[in-house]
């Protein structure tokens, strides 16, 4: 292990880690929005919305994220979508994780006992009110942990944007592996930072989960 080299290059890795964190935060936020919309569409009363939601989820979960990213970044200009690599990364990966999050959210909502809605309806709440005041708050508690799994996967998933040359952790590691021929040192450095980001995020999610869990 070449400690001297690690000490020399680590500031660049720290800078890259900041980009990885930015990408993670933005893609997760976009994913949560897309996921919520898609989950709502899939459970809608309108057939067309249900179909749109189902197609979105199936297409984005059925094809590789890398292909989706390439299609958007390299193919986008052909259909009038001009994005820089970072924007394409956020939008492409956000749409991708959104499809997975949609299934997580739908799963949580479906697993709330149907008797809850019935009871709320009996008490005179409208369908919307019952969903908003009774089902959703319970489902939100249930979805924190599985969404945490999606988020953990997404943090690692941000590495894909290295393939469209966004300078984040994996791209930086790859570049330094190429220029120093020290793959193990560079992997170690990037790996420690990824694990740090994932561990801190994981702790945050468990904290949130404990906070809202019913006794």
């Amino acid at each position: 292990m070449d400690i001297e080299l690690i000490l020399k290059v680590y500031p660049y890795f720290l800078e890259a880690a900041v980009v990885t964190i930015e990408l993670s935060v933005l893609t997760v936020l976009l994913g949560l929005i897309c996921g919520a919309l898609a989950a709502a569409a899939r459970m809608s009363r309108f057939r067309l919305l249900r179909i749109i939601g189902a197609v979105y989820v199936s297409v984005f979960r059925g094809t590789p994220a890398l292909i989706q990213l390439f299609l958007l970044y390299f193919g986008g200009p052909q259909i009038g979508i001009q994005l820089d690599a970072f924007e394409a990364g956020v939008i492409g990966l956000g749409l991708n994780i959104g499809a997975y999050m949609a299934e997580t959210m739908r799963g949580a909502i479906v697993s709330v006992d149907g008797g809850q809605t019935e009871a709320a309806r009996t008490l005179g709440l409208s369908r919307t009110q019952a969903f908003r005041k009774v089902t959703l708050p319970q489902a939100m508690r249930l979805m924190i942990r599985p969404l945490g799994v999606n988020i953990n996967a997404q943090i690692k998933g941000t590495a894909l944007v290295a393939a469209i040359s966004v300078v984040e952790l994996t791209y930086t590691a790859q570049r330094y592996i190429g220029s120093t021929y020290k793959p193990f040192e560079m992997f170690f450095l990037a790996g420690v930072l990824y694990i740090l980001i994932i561990t801190v995020t994981g702790k945050g999610i468990s904290y949130l989960d404990r906070k809202v869990r019913l006794p």
Binding site: K156, T170, G191, I195
Partner: peptide, 15 residues
């Protein structure tokens, strides 16, 4: 489990 697959592929290929 804590690092991206892409990074692992680089490690294995170049390592």
């Amino acid at each position: 489990m804590g690092t991206p697959l892409l990074l692992q592929l680089f490690l294995i290929y170049f390592g």
